[in-house]
Design a protein around this nucleic acid. Structure first.
Lengths: 144, 144
DNA sequence: CTCATTGTTGATTAACTCACTCGTGTTTTA
DNA sequence: TAAAACACGAGTGAGTTAATCAACAATGAG
């Protein structure tokens, strides 16, 4: 029941990019150094975030990455789903990537006890992460 | 960010044992059939729960497993921690298995933005699972 | 007593995932 | 045209997950 390093690194990288939002681009090298992230791994993460439409990038000598959406419009939940997949603790309660449970004897019944609790866990997690934006997130780290 | 099959099977097995609580013992075979769990895998799970003090067992011809604590005194959080480890989404916010983050640049500062959000996620998850008992859980499945 | 039945233990396994790492490109600017 | 930067795909070693297997120990029926 853990988030991956990928998500953690991704959030920390976005913290840097949020601070730079509207002023400069950041190179993966700078982000890697400031946040202590292995650079080749960081690259994968930045590319994934780019493909998801959160970042733009520029190649060549003066290249780098920058946020292309407003920090207050990107939720941590969104970021984590991109990098780590669904937030739900089991497939059959995911709203973004529902998967029918194959072997559960309650699957065909009106309600499954496991599904009920896990559904509320999912809602609690999503309730926090989908309402917490990069802007909120970055505000915390400025005062630190 | 998922719970393992082990936890899921464990909870479903305990559902059966909760229904039988106070009346009969159940053999792993019966639990396996009713809940569609691979029997040898179920065995490991039942043994882990036994070592954790939730179950007792009896060998031989009329053997089987039974709950030795009241269903209303066993929380789902407790069960999942036994089978899956800590509930916290990252090590540095776990209350039952804290682990200092080695590489985080905020580790030495007063507060880490990641830690703050993840801490509230942890609290939300634990708040649900630690206050939801096997008794509550089994009550749901009776009416199903 | 003995033997089938059941739980106990430890080892082993195949498949998968995680966290990187590498090599080779392609684009940009000096 | 060379150096700097992003892009992409493949590969890898360690660890985890989900079982599976084999050998053993206790129990109770006959």
């Amino acid at each position: 029941m853990k988030f991956s390093k990928k998500s953690e690194y991704g959030l920390r990288a976005l913290l840097e990019l949020t601070h730079a939002y509207g002023s400069t681009t950041l190179q993966r090298h700078d982000i890697a150094v400031r946040q202590h992230i292995p650079i080749e791994f960081l690259e994968q993460i930045l590319l994934a975030l780019k493909r998801a439409g959160l970042l733009s990038s520029k190649r060549g000598v003066k290249g780098g990455y920058s946020l292309i959406k407003q920090p207050k419009e990107i939720s941590l939940g969104h970021v984590i789903r991109i990098l780590d997949g669904p937030l739900a603790p089991i497939g059959c309660v995911s709203k973004t990537a529902y998967q029918k449970c194959s072997d559960c004897p309650y699957a065909k019944r009106a309600h499954c006890p496991v599904q009920q609790v896990m559904g509320s866990v999912r809602d609690a997690i999503a309730g926090i992460l989908d309402n917490y934006t990069l802007a909120d997130f970055a505000a915390k780290s400025k005062t630190a």
